[in-house]
Every structure is written in structure tokens, then in C-alpha cells.
Design a protein around this nucleic acid. Structure first.
Lengths: 311, 311
DNA sequence: CGCGTTTGATAATCAGAGATTATGAATATC
DNA sequence: GATATTCATAATCTCTGATTATCAAACGCG
């Protein structure tokens, strides 16, 4: 008998669970099947790889070597499959993650563009916060993600798409009070107690705080709205002011006509929206193509927002 | 279906033979078996890996990626098997190569030592010239080899065993003529036409020439004896003189009592005999153990030779 | 201590992956 | 145009690797 990849996957599962039954379940086989394959491999190598005694399963030193090799081989295979898949261009299954403060504004414009430029693309979208998306990317559950740059993670390839300026949104009265009659509006002029934020985890909230030179725990009340839409409605109700990315302005002002919006003075605070992927595959045609399409969509949305009334 | 190692080995075979039938033969299967597995893999990756047209089989770019990955994985596996095997110490099958000018003199002493120190060691010896041994090492057909250092090959681990001085052997008359009454004997004093050498490929012949500052094509007649034993008999017959490694002196003088032997003046020409292995496995206990035993045997043989008569 | 529970090994059986042989289609060769 | 070569396809068979059932050892517990 020769060593098989199946045996190596079983070794990895068993090393991670340290339990034959659980390892078998993870591999979607029964326990004897896994036990047998482990035994076969041990016979083949003429060395026990796992120590089975009371109080659990542990790795021998030979087992550790086999485990490390198995993991390298699996990673190698995964990288290869990825490379082969994406070599064919922007086609097949594309699992794309998008942060919630971008998705509803960018995608309605971007998706038709993508559809028009590709054939046979099975696009699967996932909307989640940056940290979740990055974890999914690293674990191979996503092919790419749209987030605010920089990701802060090494081993990712980043492509900047467009710059998204922050605007101040609230009632006309609130905005007038903050600007206090002066022409130039600066983030530092905002009363921290008046600033409405998205709930914890949204990068937009962190960016807003950073722009104002604040930390979240500086604030006494923390509303933590779940979405930009909610936030805008709260702001339009006079409950405070909020940062509104230009990307979202068009939609939100349409949905909440009462909402007044003001531009900050130069240098305007902003975020850079970018596309990121794992640095596994060699060929990046698909990635560049996708980035191009998203860039086109993003700049279009931001430009259209600029023509809206109320600035 | 999942990718299997079997498929990867078939890819490697097919890429190297560029012929389904020959690749199948190399894998010890029939042609349809190989064709099917290649097809399965291509289906799985949803990409053709090989182009079959008139005038042969060639790799697509996806195929090249798969091939490279497959080779890496196979190398990884081989390294792992090696490491696991040798982690158990000096036991199991050990394929040891030895150059011909060392084997018959060192092994009779070394083998009993090795036997006494190990249990269950299945020692397989191969006597061949340096170039063959190094090729076998690199291809994984040998685990270690005893050669004259340096090997000149990167990626090998070398352990020096002992120094083997070169002596001048011939009839007393020849040696007396060369030394010409002077006390100090130097290699450069040897008449090139008088120097007997082993046939092409023996490192000892190259070293002898180097010591004398000669090239093989400087010589008019090239006897090219196949073994040191023959060389000594020729020298004892007055046909010329030869370099005799101290390692071989004891045996050869016993076999050819007429042979006179003289030491060179300082610095005496010599070669360093060493043990080499591939730099694959992590654990080197077995290698160090073996080197220790061989060193012990080698120094003993050289020392005993020094007590022989005739210097 | 007896009893049930958990865990991994073993045995018997079954399904399917992957082999084989036989054959076909396409192209090259004489 | 007959033949040889080469790879693909089809039918069949073999054996790897799955399943279910069961066992033995160690552990927990009243």
C-alpha cells in the first residue's frame, strides 16, 4: 500500500481533535474507517504516529513530522486548485465578501456591470464586518473581499478601488450649531456626545472615532446602530449627527429627505475602499478585472452622490 | 471525487514521457487506467492539463502548475518518509555506496563494527565511482555514501571520517631512482611517463594527477587499471610507480610482497574520506552514529597499515 | 463492587474507485 | 488504401476503503 491523501487528511483531523470518533465525524466517515486508515499509515511507515493511552490521544514525534508534512501538502494542493481555477479568468464560483457600510450602496451598481462583463460567473456574496471577512479569506471560505484599506493583515493582496469621503449628516439645525457660523467645518468641532456611531465592530465607527480623535469609551452614551440607514434616521430625527460616507449619500438622502448633509473642509476625512484576496494564486487576471469593475462602479456612485442636493 | 496522489504521480509520468502508453508502463498500469485518472483530474479541476494533438502530448499552463505542485508534494512525502524512517535510529534498510578504492579495505573492518553496534540493520552496499554514487544519492537510490571529500555537490551533508595519505609504491629500484639519493621524496619528482593510474572516473586517479600537477592528456600511455590491486601488481612488476593510499597499504603489501612503499616528505599528499547524505531528513542520529563507526574503522586500518614493513 | 458509558480495535460485509481487457476513432505511414 | 500508432471509450472485475456490529479496556458512579 501507498500513502494516500485520505490518510493525511485523517491524520490532520485526528491531530486536531485528539479523538478518533470526532475526527471521523469531521471527515464524514465512521470511526472504524478512520482507525483503519491511521493504522494502515502507521504500518506503512512502520512507526506509531499516535499514542493511545488513558487520557486521550497524542502525537509521537514521528506523528508531528507527518502532521506538519500533511498540512504543507494540503496547503500546496489548495493553492494549486485555486490557481488553476482562477487561471481561467473571472468565471466559475466567486465568493465575495463585502462590509455592510459598502454593500447596499456599491453592489446595486456593481453587480450589473459584473454581469455584463462576465459569463458563467456564479457570484456568492457575504456581508459581514471586516474581521469576519478577513478570517474567512484566510481560511479559504472567501475568494476576495471589499473592505476599507488597509486590512492590517500580511499575506493579503490589496487593490485600492476608490476614495470615499466622510460627510457630516444630521438636521440642518444640528449642523448649523456645530459649524457655529464659520465656513470651514472640521471633525474636531463635533461634540462627542452628539456623535452617533454604528455598533461595535464596524470599521466605519472606528474610522469616525479616529477622525475625531476619540475613543469609544470616551463616550457616555453609545447608541450603536446596526446600519447606516438606521443611523441616518436617528440623525434626521435630531438625536445627533453622524458621519455619512459619500458612497451612501445618494441612497440615504433619498430614503430620509429630512437629512441635511455638509462637507468638511480640506483635508476631508475619508476612507479608501479596496479589494483584497489571499496571496495564493499566481494569476491575477480575474482579480484585476474585478477590481476594475468595482472601481468603475464605486467612482460612479460617489460621483452621482455629489450631484445630490443639500451640500 | 477528490484529487489523489495517484493522479499526481500519473501527471508526473505523463509530463515526463509525453506519451500515455509509456507513462502508464512506468506506473505499472495499463494505458486506459492512466488515461482515466488524468481525465478524472481534468474533470475535477475543470481544465485540460494536457494537449493531445497530432505530434504528441504537451502541457497546458494549468498542467504546468499542477505538475510543479505534484513534484513538490512528492518530494515532501519522500522527505517525510525518510525522516520518519531514520528517526528510529540506525535500523531498517540502509543503502550505502562506497568508492572502489575504499570499499575493499575499509569494509572488512567496518562491517563487524556496524554489526556489533546495531540490530536489525539491513545493510545494502553498492560499490561505484563517485559520480555514480552522487547521482544515486540525489535520486534517492542511496541513503549515504563513502567518498573522497569534497563532493562538490550542494545539498549534501558531509561528515569527514579520516585522512588517507598517499604513499609511493613500486619496486625498490624505481623508488630509489625517483628519490635519486635525496632524503625528501616529493610528488613532483615522479616522471609522468612512469606514473600508473586507475582507469578514467576513479577519483583517486584524478587526485594523483592533481598532486603531481598533471593532466591525464599530458601522458602518452594510459594504462588505466581497473583496481588498486591490479595497479600494485603492475607496479611490483617494475612497469612504473603508483600512488597507494595508506588505507590500502596493508592489504596490498600482503598480496604483493615485492611491492616497495615510500612515504612522501611533508606535506604528505592525502585525501579526506567522508560520509555524505542528502540533506532531507531532520534527524541525523543514524548518520552521526554511522560516521562514528566508520571513522573508528578507518583510523584503525590506516594505523595498522603504518605498522607494516617497508617504509 | 457491579453497572453503564466511553473509547478505540477488530471482524464481517458491502460499495465503489480504479484496475483490466477489448475495442473504437483519428491520424500518421508506407 | 491497408496498416500501425495512439489515445478514448465500454464492459467487467478486483480490491481498497467504507459500513455495521461487536468486543475489550478504562472510567465514572451509585
Amino acid at each position: 500500500m501507498n500513502i494516500t491523501l485520505r490518510q493525511l487528511t485523517y491524520v490532520i483531523a485526528l491531530a486536531e481533535t485528539r479523538h478518533f470518533g470526532q475526527a471521523a465525524a469531521r471527515c464524514h466517515v465512521t470511526q472504524p474507517a478512520l482507525s483503519n486508515q491511521i493504522k494502515e499509515l502507521e504500518d506503512r511507515l512502520q512507526t506509531p504516529l499516535f499514542l493511545r493511552d488513558r487520557k486521550g490521544v497524542s502525537l509521537t514525534s514521528a506523528g508531528q513530522d507527518v502532521l506538519a508534512t500533511a498540512k504543507r501538502i494540503m496547503a500546496e494542493l489548495e493553492r494549486m486548485e485555486d490557481a488553476v481555477h482562477w487561471q481561467k479568468g473571472l468565471t466559475g464560483r466567486l465568493r465575495l465578501g463585502v462590509i455592510p457600510t459598502v454593500a447596499p450602496y456599491l453592489l446595486p451598481i456593481a453587480l450589473p456591470l459584473i454581469r455584463a462583463r462576465t459569463t458563467g460567473l456564479d457570484l456568492r456574496l457575504r456581508e459581514a464586518q471586516t474581521a469576519d471577512l478577513l478570517a474567512d479569506l484566510e481560511e479559504g471560505r472567501l475568494d476576495a473581499a471589499i473592505i476599507a484599506l488597509p486590512s492590517g493583515v500580511t499575506g493579503l493582496v490589496e487593490a485600492p478601488l476608490f476614495t470615499d469621503r466622510f460627510l457630516l449628516a444630521g438636521t440642518s439645525a444640528q449642523i448649523a450649531r456645530i459649524s457655529g457660523g464659520r465656513a470651514a467645518l472640521h471633525p474636531a468641532m463635533i461634540d462627542p456626545e452628539l456623535l452617533l456611531l454604528l455598533e461595535e465592530g464596524h470599521c466605519l465607527a472606528d474610522q469616525a472615532l479616529e477622525v475625531c480623535g476619540l475613543r469609544r469609551r470616551d463616550r457616555r452614551v453609545d447608541l450603536g446602530a446596526a446600519s447606516l440607514g438606521t443611523l441616518c434616521r436617528l440623525a434626521a430625527g435630531g438625536l445627533g449627527v453622524t458621519f455619512l460616507p459619500e458612497l451612501a449619500r445618494g441612497d440615504e438622502q433619498k430614503a430620509t429627505p429630512d437629512l441635511a448633509v455638509a462637507r468638511f473642509a480640506q483635508p476631508e476625512p475619508c476612507r479608501t475602499i479596496g479589494l483584497v484576496r489571499r496571496n495564493l494564486s499566481v494569476h491575477t487576471d480575474w482579480f484585476d478585472t474585478l477590481a476594475g469593475l468595482l472601481q468603475q462602479a464605486g467612482t460612479q456612485v460617489v460621483r452621482d452622490a455629489g450631484h445630490a442636493p443639500g451640500t
